[in-house]
Design a protein around this nucleic acid. Structure first.
Lengths: 164, 164
DNA sequence: CTGAATCTCTTTAAGCTTCAAGCAATTTGG
DNA sequence: CCAAATTGCTTGAAGCTTAAAGAGATTCAG
């Protein structure tokens, strides 16, 4: 006769403490760095992190992108992007025009001002990040990159399995 | 005569692309997992992630802790905790009493209900996390733990250097 | 062609979050 | 003891965020 611990017919509480600790550590790191970047952006340029992130997405493309694209890339909700874009258009950093072939679609671009300001911020931002990670060796960094890629893939697999 | 590239008297734009990519990947991983946990918590228990996090902090200690402790451990602002606690007291999950030796201080505890509900959620939560990280080997996990510890230390060093 | 489904975006309500200012209690340095 | 600084918490304004519902435009299947 087989034992429960072998058959798993009975759900024994397994030990997943290591995974949980890993998740908490990952979260701590991100929160710490995010907070640091957030306060430097505010202090130095009086800009919020979400606005900076949005402009960073737009800076990658010359001709702008749609709200949906932005929302997918930033991994936030559609309604969220609507509000952010609204405020950035208001402040003169963005430019919006409706697609001529599909009147549902709005193309969003950085204005000249928006791009200039973003470039200035981005240059400094890059040095902050470099400093924040400065104690990691090249090998540490490439190893972290590899493991995080694996983590991302694993998380996506898990998410997809739940919502097919 | 020395060259600028040797003296660094002139700030040349150095390449910090790898650090930036690492940061973006770290952020993507965290956002992805956080979103997944958030929707499972809502779907399964109709609870928000911040409330879950707050209860998780309180579950670790039997006699409760102060609002300041909570705010430090959760790495969020004081005012934020005030609101969260208020809503959780309202819903009967938390309990607050003023310190007898220092009337500024409030001790916050889980109620019986709060602890029971949290334990139920936490058990399931742990299995979600285990599944999310399931494609990582033991070695991957311990390596990630090590590298993230190093990252955290580096980020703290950088933050401290700015705000002494 | 037409009705249904889908897509893009906006709106709304509720809640989260920060920063800064402020209040009250305690501690500290004369 | 007392004024000043510090500490613990709350409040208010602004902005971020989500989920859900909905409006308008396009696409698709029959």
């Amino acid at each position: 006769m087989m034992l429960d611990s072998e058959t798993k017919a009975v759900e024994l509480p397994e030990d997943h403490g290591t995974e949980l600790r890993l998740w908490l550590r990952l979260l701590t790191c991100t929160t710490l760095i995010e907070g640091e970047v957030r306060s430097r952006l505010r202090e130095r340029f009086d800009v919020t992190l979400p606005r900076f992130d949005l402009m960073a997405q737009l800076d990658k493309v010359p001709d702008g992108m749609t709200l949906s694209d932005l929302s997918k890339r930033m991994m936030v909700s559609n309604g969220n992007v609507t509000g952010l874009v609204e405020r950035l258009v208001e402040s003169g950093h963005l430019d919006r025009r409706t697609s001529e072939t599909d009147r549902r679609v709005q193309f969003i671009r950085l204005t000249k001002l928006g791009r200039a300001e973003f470039r200035k911020m981005a240059a400094e931002h890059e040095t902050w990040i470099a400093d924040i990670f400065a104690d990691l060796s090249r090998k540490d960094i490439s190893e972290l990159m590899r493991l995080l890629a694996k983590t991302k893939a694993s998380a996506q697999r898990s998410a997809k399995a739940r919502t097919p």
